[in-house]
Amino acid sequence: MNNLKYFIERKMSMSHIYQPVMIKVLLENGGVTDKINIAKTILSYDFSQVEYYEDITNNMVGRILRKNEVVIREKNIYKLIDHENLSPDEVQELIDLCELKINEYIDKRGNQIWEHRRRNRKAVSGSVRYNVLKRADGRCELCGISKDEKALEVDHILPKNHGGEDTIDNYQALCYTCNANKRDTDDTDFRNLGVKYDLRAADCIFCNYSRETIVENELAIAFYDKYPVTSKHILIIPKRHCEDYFSLSQPEVNAINRLAHELKSKLTVEDQNITGFNLGFNSGEDAGQTVFHCHMHLIPRRKNDVSNPTGGIRNVIPGKGEY
Rank of each mutant, 00 (worst) to 15 (best):
N59P: 06
M60W: 05
V61W: 01
G62Q: 00
G62H: 04
G62T: 01
R63W: 06
L65W: 02
K67Y: 07
K67N: 11
N68A: 07
N68E: 14
E69G: 01
E69M: 00
V70K: 10
V70G: 04
V70Y: 05
V70N: 06
V71A: 05
I72M: 10
I72Q: 11
E74P: 03
E74S: 08
K75P: 03
K75R: 14
K75T: 07
N76Q: 14
N76H: 15
N76V: 03
I77A: 09
Y78V: 00
Y78N: 04
K79T: 12
L80A: 08
L80E: 00
L80K: 06
L80F: 09
L80T: 02
I81C: 01
I81G: 04
D82R: 09
D82P: 02
H83S: 15
H83D: 12
H83I: 14
E84M: 04
E84R: 09
E84N: 13
E84L: 01
N85C: 02
N85W: 05
N85E: 09
L86H: 03
L86K: 12
L86Y: 13
S87C: 08
S87D: 07
D89L: 15
E90A: 12
V91Q: 05
V91S: 01
V91H: 06
E93R: 13
E93I: 02
L94D: 09
I95K: 09
I95W: 00
D96Q: 10
L97C: 10
L97R: 10
C98A: 15
C98V: 15
L100Y: 14
L100S: 09
K101Y: 13
K101T: 12
I102S: 04
